[in-house]
Every structure is written in C-alpha cells, then in structure tokens.
Amino acid sequence: MEKLLVAQNVSKTFGNYKALNDVSIEVPKGSIFGLLGPNGAGKTTFIRIINQITMPDTGKVFLDGEPLQPHHIQYIGYLPEERGLYKSMKVGEQALYLAQLKGLSHQEAKTRLKYWFDRLDIGDWWNKKIQELSKGMAQKIQFVVTVLHQPKLLIFDEPFSGFDPINANLIKDEILTLRNEGATVIFSTHRMESVEEMCDHIALIHKSNKILDGKLIDIKRAYKSNTFEVGLHTQNPEAVTAELHEKFEVSPATFKSINNELQYKIKIPEHASPNDLASYLTTQGQLTHFVEVIPSANDIFIETVQKN
C-alpha cells in the first residue's frame, strides 16, 4: 500500500529530556491512523515535527515521497489539542484570515467557507465574535478552518473534546467522509472507543519509543489469547465447574443472558481447535453462549503500556 507519510528514525531531545527516540512510522494513503500513547509519551512532539513546528534532531520525514519542506504546510490540516481562536475577532473574518495563511486566495476561501458554513448549518455565525459563541460552536469553526484548504493529510489531536454527542457524531461522519474522498487522517486520542470505531492503523508510543504499530486487525489477531466466553446450562454445576477447572484455564465471566447458566472465560492452548472445546462442552450440558474474546484497543493499550 502506498504511504503518504513516512517518518524514519526520528529523534528529538529537549535539554536533558528525550521526547522521541528513534521513532519510525508509516502512514498508508487513505487510512485513518491512530496515534496512541499515554500522556507525555511524545505524540504531540511527533505531530509538531510533521507540522514543521519543531525540527527533529535526527531522522527524516517524507510527505508523499518528498522530504518535508516548508511549502508542504498547505497540504496538511492540523487541529492541535491546545486550540483556540482570536476571541475578539469575527467568525468570518477570522476563518478567512486563517484560510489565507494556508495559501488560499481571498475569493477561494470565501466560496469554500460559504459551502462549509451551509453544510454545518452555521451560516448565521459569520458576523459574530468568537467570544459570543459557546466552546462547542467555536470548535466547529476550528474544524472547518482545519479542513478548508482540502489537505492531503489531516491531523486531529483529540478532535472530539468539547463536543456534545450529537456534534461529536457529526464531526466523526465528516472525518469519515473526508477519508472516503481521499484524505489521510492521523488521529491522536485517548478515547479508545473512537479508535475502535474509526482507525484502521495504529501506532503506540510510550516513553518516547514506538512500541507497537500496524493494522488494527492484525494487532488484534496477534493479541488474542485463544480465550472463549461460554455459557453452559447444566443440571450439575458444581461437578462441571470442578472438571472445567481441572482441564482448562478458567476465569469467571459475566455477560447478559436470560438463562440461569454457568458463565466462564476459557483459555485453550495456542493450536487447539475451538471446535473441540465446543463439542466437549456440549457433552456437559446445553451450550447457550460461545464467543471468542477479541482484545479491545483499550485492552491492548493497557497491556502493552504496562508490559513496557
């Protein structure tokens, strides 16, 4: 798959503090790439390097095959975590100013802004000052300004903070639409459910090092532990429980059910077949529930970070 952004062995030191240590990341074209990591891991530094706000000490970054250059700024749309707008400036004027800084002409910027303002139904805010708007409203303007110049690469740092669920959904759909229209998205967040929902690739940075990256599905495959959640309806629960504990690695599980049954997580050896487990269980009683436990992004995050 073609890569839009390639970072090779990027390191950055602030004084005595190493913010990034030899990090290499490849972002495929047209993907939504989750950049994950605990607070202070170095995500923001990495994003700032892509935006040429800070320069790496060593290492190279390529955008669309070319080494990063000042003019690439216009191909990138960046919504930083620390974001805001000039409070005393009018919405329209401010959006025009920011768009022109990204290289759009005054006329072009105006046309596109009209389109986006209509699309998000915020047309009548044009002459309002930012300080008259709520935080969520200001965030919408910020989003529009970020995507207005139709960048190839969109970088969102915690894009949903400050939005109510309805607007968060709206923005999520807009991001997906932009991806479908060909944009590549780098997405940094602590909200694992949105990672689960949106990202197809992830990279995990911890203590300045990249400790994990790849397709989310592949990572999940690698992290699954051959564990199955089962529900078993039986006449003789004590005996069955004892036998299960003897034969397998068993841990208690809880899931919603209408039956009054035994609920367990059962781990089988790596190359054993789930079919064997299932047929064994049917001999013990009525099998009401049989699901493979797939690790969530959240689980993977916690497990990997704690392991390192």
Binding site: N51, Q52, I53, P70, I73, I76, Y78, L79, P80, E82, R83, G84, L85, Y86, K87, L98, L101, K102, Q142, V145
Partner: peptide, 17 residues
Amino acid sequence: IEEKTSRIIEVIISSVK
C-alpha cells in the same frame, strides 16, 4: 500573551513561521 492565552498560537504556527 493574548495569542498564548487564547491558545490559537499552535494553529497559526502550523501555517507560518
């Protein structure tokens, strides 16, 4: 200082030096 307190600074300097 206003640019810092309104937190717009990072938006701006991702566009200009």
